[in-house]
């Protein structure tokens, strides 16, 4: 220890906040998921596994013993995972060239480009999302321009589709992919790229064999930063997706709001946590495998 033992005290304020805002509530959510719903929302203190049961299954209204899979919930789960995966891919695909562009600028102008990347964070997410709605709704800007030029006769339905949700989420989360990618590229030794060309590699081969392995940590960090908030996204699917493309965040909010079934909401929330942690572990296992083989 050599007299450094007291230094852990420095993180106690943060630990207290974490305890009050994360661990405590998480514990409460866990407890609620095993209670019965109260009549006007809230919970009544009777232990039951009903909430967990209803996450996966549905009872027939007239014959409670008739049980079937709750496909609505599973659909929302699947949609959330699928849309988040797509969002991650889109962000990676769009973020890579952006980060590359910034990383290859002169040192002085890089700061300006990075600054521009952060500008969207200055405006409230809700307002930005409504602005997207303005662009893509049936009598919005895009449809108006397309109809004015005569390219289409009737407006293209974009609002309340998965496309709208993807567009919104890709827009919101793109900086979270660009920044870690940029950080990885900035650390990269660009003479490696020259070495690649020098050793007869084509552009594609340099990208694949030299650049991508070098920026892999950036991709890993970026994917995690995009995928996790995407799977719990609330505002974007709520406004741009509407009821038809509901995601997990909306389903959970519904249970705590109009649904008046807090235990079910709590169970869904916990299940989401499990899915995210599971996905994370799986992802790191798969991505990290090559390194382990090398080290072994």
């Amino acid at each position: 220890m050599r007299g450094h033992g007291w230094k852990w005290l420095l993180c106690t304020p943060a630990l207290i906040v974490l305890l009050l805002a994360a661990s405590g509530p998480l514990l409460i959510v866990a407890v609620y998921s095993f209670l019965s719903p109260g009549n006007m929302g809230g919970v009544s203190w009777e232990f039951t596994l009903e909430a967990w049961f209803r996450v996966f299954f549905r009872r027939d209204i007239f014959e409670p013993d008739l049980v079937e899979w709750n496909t609505a919930h599973l659909q929302v789960f699947w949609r959330s995972i699928w849309l988040s995966l797509q969002t991650t891919f889109i962000c990676a695909f769009l973020g890579f060239p952006t980060a590359w562009f910034i990383a290859t600028r002169p040192r002085l102008t890089r700061t300006i480009w990075l600054f521009l990347i952060t500008i969207p964070f200055w405006t409230n997410l809700l307002i930005r999302t409504f602005a997207i709605q303005e662009m893509i709704r049936n009598n919005g800007t895009i449809n108006a321009v397309l109809m004015w030029t005569g390219l289409i006769d009737s407006p293209i339905q974009m609002m309340f589709t998965e496309f709208a949700v993807l567009l919104g989420m890709a827009y919101v989360f793109l900086p979270l992919m660009v920044l870690p990618l940029y950080a990885a590229m900035e650390k990269m030794d660009f003479s490696l790229v020259e070495a690649g060309y020098d050793l007869y590699a084509s552009r594609l081969n340099v990208l694949w064999h030299v650049i991508l392995p070098q920026v892999k940590p950036g991709f890993i960090a970026g994917s995690i930063l995009v995928f996790i908030p995407a799977i719990g996204a609330y505002v974007t699917p709520r406004i741009l997706g509407g009821g038809r493309t509901m995601m997990l965040g909306n389903l959970i909010a519904l249970q705590f709001g109009q649904g008046r079934n807090w235990p079910l909401g709590a169970a869904l929330a916990l299940l989401m946590l499990v899915v995210v942690v599971g996905a994370l572990i799986f992802y790191l296992r798969v991505v990290g495998r090559n390194d382990e083989v090398r080290r072994g």
């Binding site: 003479s191 490696l192 070495a195 060309y197 020098d198 050793l199 007869y200 084509s202 070098q214």
Partner: peptide, 28 residues
């Protein structure tokens, strides 16, 4: 550079850090 019968030994060596010694040598 990929079209010239010339190879370079870089000042920083620029060895591919994710490849083994043998893979580095075999890359070209």
């Amino acid at each position: 550079p990929s079209k010239r019968p010339i190879n370079t030994v870089f000042q920083s060596y620029a060895l591919f850090p994710h490849m083994s010694v043998a893979d580095n040598i075999g890359f070209g």
